[in-house]
């Protein structure tokens, strides 16, 4: 079972690589839209990046609009990982 620390690390590594973020920007309370300036296309790209990183499908069956902060994103992936392991 993947740990939360690992989820955070892999998510942040993927976001740093693809969206040129720095560690300082990637705080758990950072808002994806307002703080990280991710637009709607970036959001779609981010989903694809995370799908490739974690090997899961995020685009179907989930309301991704509820994800506002990075912490929400970590929670979402953690919940998804738990569901997959059941």
């Amino acid at each position: 079972m993947i740990t939360r620390e690992e989820i955070i690390k892999r998510t942040n590594d993927a976001l740093k690589k693809e969206f040129e973020f720095t560690d300082a920007q990637l705080t758990p309370t950072a808002q994806l839209r307002d703080d990280l300036c991710l637009d709607s296309l970036d959001a779609v790209d981010m989903v694809v990046v995370l799908e490739q990183q974690f090997g899961v499908t995020l685009r179907q069956g989930y309301d991704l609009r509820t994800i506002v902060t990075l912490n929400d994103l970590y929670d979402f992936i953690e919940k998804l990982a738990r569901t997959h392991n059941k």
């Binding site: 040129e20 637009d39 296309l41």
Partner: peptide, 9 residues
């Protein structure tokens, strides 16, 4: 600043 991907899309 990062080059956003909209133009390329």
């Amino acid at each position: 600043a990062r080059f956003k991907s909209g133009a390329f899309y």
